[in-house]
Design a protein around this nucleic acid. Structure first.
Lengths: 194, 194
DNA sequence: CGAAAATTTGACATGACTCAACTGGAGTGG
DNA sequence: CCACTCCAGTTGAGTCATGTCAAATTTTCG
């Protein structure tokens, strides 16, 4: 079993080695090349997907063709549209690989089977959904009372490793600003340091 | 059992009259006067609360003292901080009655008992949480690509009954704009009709 | 190397915010 | 029941952060 995934599991529930073995057997690895999609708008998200290696962005596309990034996931995160997975309804998001990536997947049906064998897993996933909700809410609320600069500084602090790894325009979209604005913010920050 | 509550239940799960009876017995009524609180920041939200009569707003208060409305609930809605209820951790929100109101409540413990007796209820609440998440996400995303005016028009369309019932500054906060701006939007809308 | 994409830069437009003053109506106490 | 207070709401004037558009530059990648 993937080390990070195990860590994530053990952060919320306790498992013996037999259970760990069993859980591991449910996950299937899948490789996704850069610029390919884990999910496209209109499709139903069939597999809960844990990022073992690489990086994904989730975004929606509005009528005017602009993309709005709602999630960035790297190793150790779950990626994709939770709602579409749980409800098995079509998603309104795209999930795209920013790098060559590898995910560990379980389908909804398999997960239900796993719940029967290891009921604690239900708790794990419930907590996952709750946390996704809360952190999204936090992000939105904090963005309502802070400027573009403040939001960017918060982003740097929270995800220092993403700053070099994710393109500027993706981060800009995540922060809800235009790339030009972020570019200027960065310039301002570097010049102010000298 | 309250008619609207029953409707809400039956929209997601099927129940026979015996189950309905049983479920109804778990809810306790509580009256809350205008300007009083269902929940205060720092408190843990002990009771899942269904609004039988009246109106509540949920908001968070930032460091600068500004309030940000995240939810408005009238008859037929569930109100309050779901996360605090599920996790039984302190909330960062206030929930205030805008009118003299009545809620139907179940504590977390009672709800767990109810789950055992009527397992379908677990499904109902899971769907409730999912929907709260999704509608919040929808609201946020749609607000990212629309102006204050567009958001207000959408609000009117979605909640025509709230427009007369909820104070302007509360709606403004919900929409993420200043009261002055909403006041001007309203003026513009009325004058444009003549 | 060359084309396409990402980023930077400049000039300008504008929507929303701030602050301050004023209006009007609801609620309260004498 | 009137007078007074206190908010909610309105209006005006000025500012500023962010958006828009267009062009220049740099980076990426086939």
């Amino acid at each position: 079993m993937d080390r990070l995934l195990l860590q994530s599991l053990l952060r919320h529930i306790s498992l013996d080695s037999q259970e760990i073995e069993l859980i591991a057997s449910f996950f299937k690895s899948k490789h996704i090349k850069k610029k390919n999609y884990l999910l496209r708008e209109g499709e139903t998200f069939r597999y809960a997907s844990y990022v073992k290696q690489g990086c994904f962005v989730m975004y929606s596309s509005d009528r005017t063709g602009k993309n709005h990034v709602t999630q960035i996931a790297v190793e150790g995160w779950w990626s994709g549209d939770i709602y579409s997975f749980l409800s098995q309804k079509p998603s309104s998001f795209f999930v795209e690989a920013l790098e060559d990536s590898e995910v560990l997947q379980v389908s909804k049906d398999e997960l239900e089977q796993l719940y029967v064998l290891v009921p604690k897993m239900e708790r794990y996933f419930r907590i996952l959904v709750q946390n996704a909700y809360v952190s999204f809410q936090d992000r939105v609320l904090s963005s309502m009372n802070s400027s573009a600069l403040e939001r960017y500084l918060e982003f740097i602090k929270k995800y220092p490793n993403l700053v070099q790894r994710v393109p500027l325009y993706t981060i800009a979209s995540y922060l809800g600003i235009r790339p030009e604005v972020l570019s200027r913010l960065r310039k301002k920050l570097t010049t102010e340091l000298s």
